[in-house]
Amino acid sequence: MKTTKLLAIASTVVVAVSMMASAHAGGTLDGVKKKGFIQCGINSGVPGFSIANDKGEWSGLDVDFCKAVAAAVFGDTTKVKYTSLTAKERFTALQSGEIDLLSRNTTWTLTRDSNLGISFTGVNYYDGQGFLVNNGVKSAKELDGASVCIQAGTTTELNLSDYFRANNMKYEPITYDKVEETIKGFEEGRCDVLTSDQSQLYALRLQLKEPEKAEVLPEVISKEPLGPSVRQGDEDWFKIVRWTLFAMVEAEELGLTSANIDEKKSSADPSVKRFVGAEEGVGGQGLKLGNEWAYNIVKQVGNYGESFERNVGSGSPLKIERGLNALWSKGGLQYAAPIR
C-alpha cells in the first residue's frame, strides 16, 4: 500500500529520464561487479516461486535462480538484492535498470520479447493457465457468466478473454493490482473464479483460509513458458543468465548435485570435468566468469531438479509433479545445450 498510483506514474517518468542517463553506462556485468551484488526482480509472494519468511529471507524457484546467477558471477549466493514486483511493475523495472535480472514467473511471448526492450533467456518452468474455484464447478466450460479475479498486466488477462470468446461465454473481469488483493477478492466472494498460471494457483491455494475447499479445474487454456529475462542489447549478460539456467539443467542430466559435486570433482568423466572447470579451455572465460562458475552454481544452489523438488515439488507443500518440467530424457521438456 506504500505506493499510490500517482507515484507509479511519477516513477515511470523517472524511468524515462533515467533511461537517458543510463544509456551510456557500461555493461550489466561490469555494473554488477562494481556494486558487488545482483539486483534481482522477483514476485511479491507466491509460495514455491518467491516468498519471504518472517526474517525477510526469500526463497523459491525464481529466487534460487537469482542465487544461481550470483553463484556464477561472484561464487557467493548472498550477493543478491531482491526487488519484489507486481506484474505491472516488472518490465518497467527491468527497462529502467532498476533491476539487472527479472526472475518472476514471466511468460515468454513474442510481444514481450520484441517490443519491450527485453530478452528472455530460457524457460525455467513450463506452465499453463488454469482456474481455481471454490463452488463445486467441475469444468471451465460451466463458467459462463462468472466473475473472474485476475491480476493486471499479465498474459492471464489476455488468455482469459480469448478462452471465453472462443467458447462463446461471458465473464466479468475483476482486475486487481496485487496478488494479495486478488486472493482476497476470491476469498470474499467478489468473484467465482481465480485464474492464473496453474503453478501459481496451487501456490496461492495454500494461502487461502480453507485450502481444501478450493479446487483447480482440469482445463489448461494456454502455454505459459516462464523464464528469466534481461535488458535487450547486452549480449554478455544475456549469455551469463542463459548459461546459468543451462548449467542447472545440465547438472541434473549429469547427475551432479550439491551433495555429490565435490566428490565427483575428481571424476574422470570428461563432461563432468568440463562442467566443474577442471578441463582447460571450456571454463568460464568466454562468459567472462571464473572457471568454477558452473561448479559454484551446483555446489551452492543445486541442480535444476534439486531446486524444483525443494521449492515446488515433493519436498515442498505444493507437491507439484515434474510433468513438462522433467528432463527431456524423462519425458519432459527441460533440455540444456551442452557445456563443452
Partner: peptide, 14 residues
C-alpha cells in the same frame, strides 16, 4: 488502471 496500467504493461509504451 486500464490505460496507464494494463495497456502500458501489455504494449510497453510507457
Amino acid at each position: 488502471a486500464v490505460f496507464a496500467g494494463t495497456t502500458l504493461n501489455q504494449s510497453g509504451q510507457a
